[in-house]
Design a protein around this nucleic acid. Structure first.
Lengths: 239, 239
DNA sequence: GTCCCGATTTGACAATTCTTTACGTGGCAA
DNA sequence: TTGCCACGTAAAGAATTGTCAAATCGGGAC
């Protein structure tokens, strides 16, 4: 089983991430400081390391440099929001990708899979990280260009609409609650009078053709939220 | 610990750079003229030398030539702004990279690390040093010469515009927040009334042709920031 | 030092996007 | 069927962004 090492001093986050990754079929170990992380990284064999930049004691870059000195194991950096340090430094010293906090666990998984795929393909570490296209049925969403296509034809979405569709697509086949949508799309708590999400769902539906008798993409789950329906008998593997 | 020698007659700058590099885990020594620099370079063992081209007495090229006569130590040249010619000369005599003043300390660190990585990877020093050029789609940006091209044609940008475009390009395919842009481009905290970034984005857009119906380069992500879109023309295999 | 010029920032207003209001529809239970 | 409540969506209102133009800043020439 693929083993992943998470180095992050945020214990709670480690727990969440760990749980999620395990549900996705990885084995996860977490340590909460750089020294310990380095130690583990050296003695054990992980397929990938998730490394927080901001660590007590030895910072993430230090750790990365030391890891790189002895091993080509793929490393995915987590950076705090609004943090100055960015790709310039991170990728230059040999990270394989990075993800700004806060992030969606699905996004993390997608990136981990992308990195693993790249490195497995024989590509040496530190190749440029290109976000993946999310495809479900006849809908295609590209985070890198923010272009959405419906049956191949580009659909013009606003920022919020794009974010909403992305959130639904990344969890295609599962119900996404209004709470989660509000949090991830609008960056705010959901309150019962807030009809904003509904409004945007309405608009997205219109734009991706959920109006005619066509098989609809976004179904309402009364009292809970929305679900992007999967085309029959296809599992939610975006990788 | 990795030791770096800085040769530059600007004492203040030496101080700043030294401080920054030390915070990044290097040990730094600085001297303020070429003769002394040469002396130090000969007797001590540095992992890298940062050398200003414009020096009182013996100029940087002289110094570099002398250093190269006896040592393969990596050298990073600092050139005054707009001195394009120097690039060719500098790299030909055996510099490993160079950086025009004024520069961002982070950029310096990134380049130092890049050089160290290159030279450590077995490439002998002074092997073809390729200063990184950032290329995304039909846009090409050279941090070293500060020249930007759109479809091959040079685009005239002001320094803020250049910095803005560079920041976006380095994170092409990902959203860059206003906070981040303000910090890295304007060197200040972003405040909600600050329209400066927007203004510059507007100007850059105009200059790189984001005005016609053509696929635009810079998209707005409302409430967050901007994203430089990655071209997706090349499917599947994107190195 | 002052003057000048281009660059950057700020002010103002238009255009676009998002939120809220308002009302209609339809599901669900008794 | 009735009543209730959640959802759909048009339209008004609020907020954010685009951009022109004017004010301010900063660096070099003198």
């Amino acid at each position: 089983m693929d083993r992943i090492l998470v180095i992050d001093d945020d214990v709670e986050l480690c727990g969440l991430v760990g749980e999620y990754l395990e549900s996705e079929g990885f084995r996860v170990e977490a340590v909460y400081d750089g020294e310990r992380g380095l130690e583990r990284a050296r003695q054990d064999n992980y397929v990938l390391i998730v490394l927080d930049v901001m660590l007590p004691g030895m910072n993430g870059f230090e750790v990365l440099r030391h890891i790189r000195a002895s091993s080509p194991v793929p490393v995915l950096l987590l950076t705090a929001r609004g943090e100055e340090v960015d790709r310039i430094v991170g990728l230059e010293i040999g990270a394989d990708d990075y993800l700004p906090k806060p992030f969606n666990p699905r996004e993390l998984v997608a990136r981990i899979r992308a990195v693993l795929r790249r490195t497995k393909e024989g590509k040496p570490s530190s190749a440029a990280a290109v976000p993946d296209i999310v495809r479900v049925g006849d809908i295609e969403l590209d985070p890198a260009t923010r272009i959405v296509r419906h049956a191949g034809k580009p659909v013009d979405l606003t920022s919020v609409e794009f974010g909403l569709l992305e959130a639904l697509l990344r969890d295609a086949g599962r119900v996404v609650t209004r709470e989660r949508l509000a949090a991830s799309v609008l960056s705010r708590k959901f309150s019962p009078f807030d009809r904003s999400i509904d409004m945007h769902v309405s608009k997205v539906r219109k734009k991706i053709g959920d109006t005619e008798g066509e098989p609809e993409h976004i179904k309402t789950v009364r009292g809970v939220g929305y679900i992007f329906v999967l085309p029959r008998s296809v599992k939610a593997k975006t990788s």
